[in-house]
Design a protein around this nucleic acid. Structure first.
Lengths: 144, 144
DNA sequence: TAGGATAGTCCCATGATCGAACTACTATAG
DNA sequence: CTATAGTAGTTCGATCATGGGACTATCCTA
């Protein structure tokens, strides 16, 4: 018999499985130079570009770490840094075309995963799951 | 307005919040030398001791990584390596008393988190959440 | 306009991660 | 009962991730 696992660990197992699948999808599509931490930071990018400190906040990492990751993404041609016209100290991190080519791939795999989960749980339990998780976000998400 | 986040990301947010809290609890209790990766591996320990390769499988990391983490845990006095009587090649990684002192702390914080989540969601939605997550594990957990 | 706050970077130390190659031991085919 | 194939764990070496501390340039506010 299996012991009862904490709810948070159950979430970790599932979310990790999803992240791994998306990661492997990108690898298989030839984007072999992106890492999970890099994708995680890139997920925080807004269409018009985002400040590094905002990216760091969203990914919950230190500014120095964000700098290092953006460096690598920039060297690999996925993002570029442009001056922020509204603040001379700041720069905006923006996706390049190369990065934008990845988005649909990741979204498609994400959609496949959601579909598989819904097929496994049934539409009702899937809706309950999303509802509970969305509500939990109010007390667990440090950023909104 | 907030865009719809993928289910797996919602799980990531919540599970990360929980992991961070448990981690901080241990830090505050004076166990400042344990890292999250180390705790994650240690969570795979069985009472009687566990082989390194099993720990690696459970934490989903490579054997070499597990070796490195066990090295650090051993140096810090949290685990010890003893020969496996049933197989001359293998060794069992076992918790020391020092590590066992941590367990109740972590479990208590985990229980507090679960209680807060249940208070926020209500008992019914919490049960539905656990039910869905447990079921999902069947298709997302590579180890059972 | 001076002083404090903020954005980003650099240096540096440590941890995490894994491919490849290795040693010691086990298990199995003949 | 040996040869040999497989397994458990380790070591080496490289790269990424991470954050503390300190720094520069710029902004904001009293």
């Amino acid at each position: 018999m299996e012991r009862e696992l904490p709810t948070s660990l159950l979430m970790f197992i599932a979310s990790r499985a999803a992240a791994d699948r998306i990661f492997r999808t990108l690898q298989d599509a030839g984007f072999t130079d992106v890492t999970i931490a890099q994708s995680r930071l890139a997920m925080g990018l807004d269409p018009g570009g985002t400040r590094l400190s905002v990216l760091a906040d969203r990914a919950q990492i230190a500014k120095q770490t964000a700098t290092a990751i953006v460096d690598k993404l920039e060297r690999a041609g996925y993002v570029e840094r442009v001056p922020d016209p509204t603040d001379g100290r700041a720069r905006l991190v923006r996706m390049t075309a190369r990065a934008e080519a990845i988005i649909p791939l990741a979204r498609a795999e994400e959609a496949r995963i959601e579909a598989e989960w819904e097929a496994h749980l049934g539409p009702k339990r899937m809706a309950q799951l999303r509802d509970a998780l969305t509500s939990l976000r109010e007390i667990t998400d440090p950023y909104r």
